[in-house]
Write a protein that binds this DNA or RNA. Structure first.
Lengths: 207, 207
DNA sequence: GTGTCAATGTCGATA
DNA sequence: TATCGACGTTGACAC
């Protein structure tokens, strides 16, 4: 009945045992079992977005009566099914890429590739500029030594984002540094706060 | 036909759009859609163990013809189905905890809580003792200054584990430090190597 | 292949 | 409810 050579979904009353990087057991219950084209195996409980147990790509299945043995390198999952409530073979399961847009990265790239549109100074541009307090999204260093610190947000900029920027300012420890918050929009309160702290707001929009 | 008030699995030819923390689109194809008891929504492609798109716990569904709208706070997923290949309502989907045993953490705790059984010295015990080369599993510091460095492994100890221990020794830079490898068992070659390097093997078993 | 690092990380614990 | 740290992290990219 079950064809373990093809991707499938099973809804079954079962127990699950795992042995490998750790050991684990799962009490009997009704769980969803997914077997994918890339030979990854997922066992999903009735909550959480992560599987309650899984085996990565490259897992080989052996079916022995009501028992599924899933092996991969030195790892093993044993599923003992008391009752199969539901089984479906998944023909032509698609493998596609998710196209992600409107990320912070996209805005960072836009600024870096058109720096002169946003800051009228020349210098060395560094992304992910490291400091004790984490990475600065964009750093523009003039030859003269003046540093321009740009914090990029993909959504509306808030006061908290400005505070974060000031922390970087202190971490850098160079009073002549200049601060910028770049985002598609900025909250009114944040804009007032920014002005009072000499932080310049840069409007940067998604294409 | 579809009851969106109950957990379900659907296999459908569909497209998926997401808007929220970022934006994303997914080309038409056959995907598995899971809706769980905790109102989390998962869309699984034919590979990878992570869902190609998802919405965390607390997502509310609206069904409009062949279109599922999933909303949660400021996030939204829209699934447009051209054909439902498969639908099953998942009654009594279990929510259980995975019981994880035999972790390295378990052995570390056992040693720390019964230190005198393993090392006949008094001193300050620190887990995850930081060094340049990473964290030492367990550090026992005597008042006199002598340091006991313990590396814990949940499986059979190997020569590589001993080498790792020597790196810590060098990182600490205190020649009078003493080295221990703790594991349920040790390879013969590793035991010989350990002896030659003045590393003591501690047998620690899972309860 | 191995090592390093980001992630729409996810998830649990804690304040 | 917000923040912090761990994860059998996973997954992508550099080497």
């Amino acid at each position: 009945m079950i064809d373990i050579t093809k991707p499938f979904v099973i809804y079954a009353t079962c127990t699950v045992e795992y042995e490998g990087r750790a050991c684990s057991t799962l009490d009997e219950g009704n769980y969803i079992i997914l077997y994918k084209k890339d030979k990854s195996l997922l066992i999903h409980s009735g909550d959480k977005s992560t599987p309650i147990n899984y085996q990565p790509s490259g897992t080989l299945l052996h079916l022995d009566g009501q028992q599924i043995l899933a092996r991969r390198k030195s790892e093993m999952i044993k599923i003992t099914m008391r009752q199969i409530i539901h089984y479906a073979c998944l023909e032509n399961w698609s493998i596609n890429e998710l196209k992600i847009r409107k990320t912070e990265r996209e805005l960072v790239n836009k600024i870096v590739n058109n720096m002169s549109d946003y800051i009228d100074r020349e210098g060395v541009v560094t992304c992910e500029y490291p400091t004790e307090l984490g990475k600065i999204d964009i750093m523009l260093e003039e030859k003269g030594g003046v540093k321009h610190i740009i914090e990029v947000k993909r959504c509306k900029a808030t006061i908290n984002h400005c505070v974060q920027l000031e922390k970087y300012y202190n971490a850098i420890g160079e009073p002549q540094s200049r601060l910028y918050i770049a985002a598609p929009s900025i909250a009114n309160s944040a804009l007032n706060y920014a002005k009072s702290k000499n932080i310049k707001y840069i409007e940067v929009l998604f294409d």
